[in-house]
Amino acid sequence: MTKPTTHHEALIQIANLGTCANGKTPAYKLFQQALDIAVAALDIPVYHNPKPVAAHLQPIFDENNRVGLLLIQRGDNLGWAFPSGWIENTDDSAETAARRESDEETGIVTHNGELFYSEITPGGIIMLFSRCPVALSIDELIFFKPNREALAVRVAYEPEELVFSSHTEAMKRWFKHKPPVVDEDELTRLAGATYQAAMRD
């Protein structure tokens, strides 16, 4: 393959390679190969936009009204962490992404939270932590089923070292400030009161 000397030649090579998959090499790999050649030959600047990770801090209360945070044992067996994952193009916000990841990994239906902490890891990953204002009962943990992303779940009632330093820091900050939370029954009562007030107005 000759190196392209113009943008037009580069685009022709990209088009040719991108459409000649031989059944063994996926077309997108051939396309990427041609794109890399074109970029190198034409000295085209390439920008790598980081894809943020959203993590969900879900409060859980037990039979003694202790409030802690939901943790998962990661499917890669590295250790314990908050439910988290990459923000997808279909997510409306980081808070929505965090909740989606938590629901997918734990099987426990949660509520949207609010962003309260962010950090850029040494590896350049943008971490966005969302804390949920609605506490769930520990009884909800019965809905968890082990899966490839989460082997187990439990509740932490005090700060501890998690598998990622950013998760550890987010946990420390949550417990230090201990934001007020409501349970779902209180949320329903408040929603009902708000609705009645709106009807009166």
Results as ranks from 00 to 15, higher is better:
1 M>H: 12
4 P>Q: 02
7 H>K: 12
10 A>H: 09
12 I>T: 01
14 I>T: 10
16 N>H: 14
19 T>G: 08
26 P>W: 01
27 A>T: 06
31 F>C: 15
33 Q>D: 13
33 Q>E: 15
33 Q>T: 14
35 L>T: 12
36 D>C: 08
36 D>W: 07
37 I>Q: 05
41 A>S: 14
46 V>K: 03
47 Y>G: 01
47 Y>Q: 10
48 H>A: 05
49 N>I: 10
51 K>N: 05
53 V>P: 00
54 A>M: 11
54 A>C: 07
56 H>C: 08
57 L>R: 02
60 I>M: 06
65 N>Q: 03
65 N>D: 10
69 L>Y: 03
69 L>G: 03
74 R>G: 11
77 N>A: 13
79 G>K: 03
82 F>D: 01
93 S>V: 02
95 E>V: 02
95 E>N: 08
96 T>P: 00
109 V>T: 15
110 T>W: 05
112 N>C: 15
117 Y>N: 01
122 P>E: 01
124 G>I: 02
127 M>F: 10
130 S>N: 12
131 R>V: 01
131 R>E: 07
132 C>K: 04
135 A>H: 00
138 I>P: 01
142 I>S: 12
143 F>Q: 10
148 R>P: 11
151 L>C: 06
152 A>V: 15
152 A>Y: 12
153 V>W: 01
153 V>L: 04
153 V>A: 06
157 Y>W: 09
158 E>T: 15
159 P>H: 12
160 E>V: 13
167 H>M: 06
171 M>K: 03
175 F>L: 04
177 H>F: 13
180 P>F: 11
180 P>N: 12
184 E>L: 04
188 T>G: 02
188 T>V: 13
194 T>S: 14
194 T>F: 15
197 A>M: 11
199 M>L: 14
199 M>R: 14
200 R>L: 07
201 D>W: 10
